[in-house]
């Protein structure tokens, strides 16, 4: 019985392969078509806005962006010029930078020491404490807003950058500690043991071994935290507040522009692209780290 099956098998496989080949060319074409269609669907919204941002105000409300491809070609940089002068986006861009850079640097350093302690020091309660960090990863920051806002108000911090620097450090830390500890903890134990035998203390191990070997993780984390802060709306909306427009970052300024029914709406496209410029540059320049951070950051499958 088994010999019979064995003899028949090659013939059956051959006919199957033949029919597969003829149908596979058609299948490949359909597959490519579907993927290209998905790419177009995903790109059209952004491309549409990019073209809209380059069209003069006079035609924006009467014709769609796709009419720009036919004559008369109406293109202008006026919206980008106006956005910096009128809508306060220039100031908001500076604010976003002044908020995001310190709010990236502080948690990186604070997390690095904690991650090292979690990885290479033994102490009672270590595992339990790290489980708390894992739990804090998902705590919605909504549950912290009201008490912190009240404290900041008492201390006269509301409306100031220091408030959001500190808040973003606190909110970003669980992920930062988690990501760095996962990376540092997986470094080869032998390296640290032989360093200790050679008389290196923890400070030396940290700066000479753990940090240099963990640079990819630091890079991924820095990109993440920077983008998280740069793209944040809620934290700056609560702790800086609409009452302090001079200190608001771009997200809050643009969100305000969307909701206002004033004459600035034609600047929205240009404003959005100004706010996207830095994230997109980071994304294209450092995509490798970006992807690594995402894959490494998800609780491993």
């Amino acid at each position: 019985m088994s010999t019979l099956v064995k003899q028949q098998a090659p013939a059956a496989a051959a006919t199957k392969a033949l029919s597969r080949r003829s149908s596979s060319r058609r299948g490949r074409f359909v597959l490519n078509l579907v993927v290209v269609a998905l790419m177009i669907i995903w790109a059209v919204p952004t491309v549409g806005l990019l073209i809209s941002s380059l069209r003069p105000q006079s035609v924006l409300s009467s014709s769609g962006w796709w009419t720009a491809f036919a004559p008369p070609y109406h293109f202008t940089m006026a919206n980008y010029r106006d956005v910096f002068h009128q809508a306060g986006i220039g100031q908001a861009f500076v604010n976003s930078l002044l908020i995001a850079v310190p709010a990236t640097v502080i948690p990186l350093f604070v997390a690095a020491f904690a991650a090292y302690a979690f990885s290479w020091m033994t102490f009672p309660g270590r595992d339990l404490l790290f489980v708390v960090v894992v739990g804090l990863l998902v705590v919605p920051l909504q549950t912290t807003l009201i008490p912190i806002l009240k404290l900041f108000a008492d201390w006269g911090l509301t409306g100031q950058f220091l408030a959001v620097w500190l808040a973003h450090t606190g909110y970003g830390l669980p992920f930062a500690v988690y990501l760095l500890r996962n990376f540092m903890g997986s470094l080869p134990r032998a390296v640290f043991e032989s360093a200790a035998i050679d008389g290196a203390n923890h400070v030396t191990s940290f700066f000479r071994l753990a940090v240099p070997m963990s640079l990819p993780a630091f890079a991924a984390l820095a990109i993440f935290q920077f983008l998280f802060v740069w793209n944040d709306l809620l934290v700056s909306l609560i702790y800086i507040g609409l009452a302090n427009p001079d200190n608001l970052p771009m997200t809050a300024t643009i969100a305000n522009l969307v909701n206002s029914l004033g004459g600035g709406w034609y600047l929205l496209g240009a404003a959005a692209f100004v706010s996207m410029a830095l994230p997109l540059a980071l994304f294209f320049g450092l995509q490798r780290y970006f992807v690594r951070g995402i894959v490494g950051g998800a609780v491993k499958g």
Partner: peptide, 21 residues
Amino acid sequence: SIIFLPLAISMVAASVIWKFM
């Protein structure tokens, strides 16, 4: 890259993009 790109931008920017859509 094309499908991943929207993740890099803020939800506010995405809102503007889709307001036009």
